[in-house]
Design a protein around this nucleic acid. Structure first.
Length: 822
RNA sequence: GGACGAGUGGCGGAACUGGCAUACGCGCACGGUUCAGAACCGUGUCUCGCAAGAGGUGAGGGUUCAACUCCCUCCUCGUCCACCA
């Protein structure tokens, strides 16, 4: 008797049964019913539910996360594995504008599609804990958090030049602007605009955001990107007197050790002092650079331009007068907008000095020992070295000299140590409709006031027209019923803030909401604390899986909120995500991005229809290491389908024919292979090495197929169990229907290998003079007995052939290798 | 320019802590099954060589009994940052 593998028939059935029997329910844990168990909060970055439906890239990250969740569940941990929707933001709104629908109507449709697709993939979510960021019951808390942050002084409103996307008609944060000056969402050019904005003081947390990276188990690359982005630099602000004026210019530098080699100062065209000069050629230069865009400046081959101000500064160290220039290579937004030029030891300074015939003085001698005058680019010495031509610094290593001269500057009152950051404060307003309304009111008399907690949620009104305006004002500003209100403080007339929050707001804390119980409470400190207490210690997140594109966006913002909440004593941990693992992108078969316009999109629904969800899951886990980028391959998918089908056939035939042997009669080799497979899968899943786990299971299957009667029923079931996280449907079908098990395989106890693997014989490679000559079977029990092994090995004909003399030395690594040196 | 990562068959990739390089899968070839095809099954598949054997993990050098793995020099690709003082 054998049944054909038709996954489409049983997959649907199990979705319903798992639902009905609450196999993946987290309720027992929330009720604190299972005390003393270890918890695992296993989370994937939740999706923005686009109209396109689930992408095979989604399938990859959610399957990987599901495998980890199922693994820990079977290992007896309490597992929190939730799913929700990040539905506010530009993409949803832009799509709605295009479809001429209200996003409030459209988003639920998209969510329904996503959810249906996710269910068909067999993810073990507890759907009772589903959340949507656009749900007023969710965003009332996002708004409440905004108010808490406002009250602690982390938010301020400021009229400031910001990055503005004319296409999306909204202001943006620094993090949302790509290096080429375009918007990360729509890809169009960004411009600068002065707009009043709510700004988050994330810079206040720069040091902690940097130092707390230390303890995180995250990919190195992401840690590095966050460090770069925060960009902490220690240096000194040095004050230079301007000759003939009662004024100073302050320059920031990280290399004060080279200050005896300073021969000029350059200030940015936007520098304050420039405005006071009023010289024709200076004005002309400033005007010219102002008319150029940032991009144009960079494109001019980095050739240095500039103009002499006519003024000189005095270098306190040696009383020398050095000219002050204006140049656009100095940026007004970095440091003090003024730079002291040391052309011998900074390439840009050298280029500038060359261009305008300024002196070059060498003050450091590097490893090459070159002490000559610096006249060529290649000689510019930016690396380690020893000081010369620098009075009391002579002979010192540059690092020692740096410290010494900083002390000296500070002592004399000529300078002050400072720390600068690349990180900027976070622009938090968006002039768009589809976001959480900012819960603030402006009163002429009382200024900005948060709305009372009792008025939360401040609902986003359902309106016909919500398109962004040309004026830089939010669409909400034209709705009088929304705008006009009373001041919570004095009761007088007041106006609401009409900007909305950016899409990052909801995702900053969604993982906390997942870990809270489902009781709908009104926002207050007491209720927040109650919800945390009732959540059963799930937090923080143990396993977080998602794409690297969020390295300096979501992952940074979220860390910031959690630290602020810690300071407010609303949370008792400082870092939200203990372990982070990245996933690689899934490209189309043609190695391009999947896109409707290329016509190369793979729809998971079609794949499931043809091959079943298990085969798709196995394929996406097997195709490459989880964090590697990979191109889709339907051929390779068929290989995984074959594997699933072969497992099915083997079990159908064996169980059908009652072909299992007794434990005593098992094939020893096959049992060893099974044990090794269990060990491999057990260590590979938490190691996020799904591809090698599956390869090992395939190896086992190859052996098992050759000897289907060689394994007992008990041991055969163990194989099904380690396969279960990857192929939940098929394993459940065999487990329950063929083996007649009562409860789900997904609630069964993960198999273990007791004691040492009973491997009786192992193959020992034999080398002579480091060259492989033979491989000899030895008894595992004997591996420590070197004499006996040597005797055995020397009996081999092949070995004898190469044993042309007496061995000088024998290297034996027990069980690994034996090497004779002649 | 800087930081990080990576280079292994026709392809995706494996190799624990330095110990049989190319596991597993795809593809390909030959054979079986079939009226035929699909599907499936079997055998083979790094290079040179009939073979014994020799060579081989981007290039070159080094350490070691032993190097994909460690060290040095260089090349290529990817990602992020960047006139950052």
């Amino acid at each position: 008797m054998s049944t054909r593998y038709e996954p489409q028939e049983f997959e649907k059935k199990w979705i319903q049964i798992w639902d009905k029997e609450k196999v993946y329910s987290m309720e027992p844990a929330f009720a604190k019913a299972s005390v003393g168990k270890e918890k695992s909060y296993v989370l994937a970055m939740f999706p923005y539910p686009s109209g396109a439906g689930l992408h095979v890239g989604h399938v990859r990250v959610y399957t990987g996360t599901d495998v980890v969740a199922r693994y820990f569940r079977m290992n007896g941990n309490l597992v929190l594995h939730p799913m929700g929707w990040d539905a506010f933001g530009l993409p949803a709104e832009n799509a709605a504008v295009k479809a001429k629908k209200n996003p409030m109507d459209m988003v639920p449709e998209h969510i329904a599609t996503f959810k249906k697709q996710m269910k068909s993939l067999g993810f073990s979510y507890d759907w009772n804990h589903e959340i949507t960021t656009t749900d007023p019951n969710y965003y009332k808390w996002t708004q409440w958090l905004f108010i808490q942050f406002y009250k602690m002084g982390l938010l301020y409103k400021k009229n400031t030049p910001i990055n503005y996307c004319p296409t999306c008609k909204t202001g943006l944060a620094e993090e949302e602007v790509l290096p080429n000056g375009t918007h990360e969402r729509c890809g169009n050019k960004i411009e600068k605009r002065d707009l009043p904005q709510w700004v988050f003081k994330i810079t206040k947390y720069a040091d902690r955001l940097l130092s707390d990276l230390e303890g995180l188990d995250w990919p190195k690359g992401i840690l590095e990107m966050q460090r770069n982005w925060i960009g902490r630099k220690e240096g000194i602000n040095i004050n230079y007197k301007i000759k003939g004026r009662n004024e100073i210019i302050t320059c920031f530098t990280t290399r004060p050790d080279t200050n005896f080699g300073a021969t000029f100062i350059v200030i940015a065209p936007e520098h304050e002092f420039v405005k006071k000069i009023n010289k024709n050629d200076v004005n002309k230069y400033v005007k010219e650079t102002a008319s150029k865009s940032e991009q144009e400046r960079l494109n001019e081959n980095k050739k240095k331009t500039g103009v002499f101000t006519g003024f000189y500064a005095i270098n306190n160290l040696n009383g020398k007068e050095i000219p002050i220039w204006v140049s656009d290579f100095v940026l007004s937004g970095f440091g003090t907008g003024a730079v002291v030029g040391v052309p011998g030891h900074d390439l840009r300074d050298f280029e500038f000095a060359q261009e305008f015939g300024i002196d070059v003085i060498r003050v450091v001698v590097g490893k090459d020992g070159d002490k000559s005058k610096i006249t060529k680019r290649e000689q510019v010495q930016e690396e380690e070295g020893v000081m010369i031509n620098s009075n009391f610094l002579n002979g010192l290593d540059i690092h020692v000299a740096t410290k010494k001269i900083m002390d000296y500057f500070e002592e004399k009152g000529w300078g002050q140590r400072v720390t600068t950051y690349h990180l900027r404060d976070w622009i938090f307003s968006r002039q768009r409709y589809w976001g959480e309304p900012i819960p603030m009111v402006f009163c002429e008399k009382c200024g900005w006031q948060p709305i009372p907690e009792s008025e939360l949620p401040l609902k986003l009104p359902y309106v016909k027209s919500y398109e962004p305006t040309e004026t830089g004002e939010s669409p909400l500003s034209v709705i009088p019923e929304f705008v006009n209100t009373t001041c919570p403080n004095c009761g007088g007339k007041a106006k609401r803030e009409t900007d909305t929050m950016p899409n990052w707001a909801g995702s900053c804390w969604y993982f906390i909401r997942f870990a809270q119980d489902n009781k709908d409470l009104s926002p207050s400190i007491e209720n927040w604390k109650l919800k945390i207490e009732n959540s059963g210690n799930w937090l923080p997140v143990d396993w977080y899986l998602g794409g690297a594109e969020h390295a300096v966006l979501h992952l940074l913002y979220s860390r910031f909120w959690i630290k602020a909440l810690y300071d407010l004593k609303l949370l008792n941990f400082k870092e939200p995500f203990l372990r982070l693992r990245n996933l690689g992108m899934v490209l189309a078969e043609d190695h391009r991005k999947m896109s409707k316009s290329f016509g190369n999109v793979i729809n998971p629904d079609d794949v499931i229809k043809e091959y079943g969800a298990d085969a798709l899951r196995i394929y996406e886990m097997f195709m490459a290491p989880f964090d590697a980028e990979i191109a889709w391959s339907t051929k390779s998918l068929q290989g995984s389908y074959r594997f699933v089908k072969r497992v099915w056939d083997l079990f159908q035939n064996n169980v059908g024919n009652k072909n299992f042997c007794s434990v005593q009669n098992e094939d020893k080799q096959l049992v060893v292979k099974l044990q090794k497979t269990i060990q491999k899968v057990t260590s590979d899943i938490p190691g996020i090495k799904f591809n090698t786990a599956i390869a090992m299971m395939m190896e086992f299957l190859n052996d098992y197929e050759k000897n289907p009667q060689g394994l007992s029923k008990e041991n055969s079931k163990k194989f099904l169990q380690v396969l279960a996280p990857f192929a939940p449907y098929m394993t459940e079908e065999i487990w329950k229907n063929t083996f007649k098990e009562e409860s789900s395989i997904h609630l069964s106890v993960w198999p273990t290998v007791s004691g040492e693997i009973i491997e009786e014989e192992i193959i020992l490679p034999v080398q002579i003079n480091g060259k492989l000559r033979d491989a000899i079977k030895i008894q595992r029990l004997n591996i420590k007995d070197q004499k006996a092994i040597e005797e055995l090995v020397l009996k081999s004909e092949k070995v004898k052939k190469y044993m042309t003399g007496k061995p000088k030395k024998i290297i034996y690594i027990p069980g690994k290798i034996i090497n004779f040196i002649i």
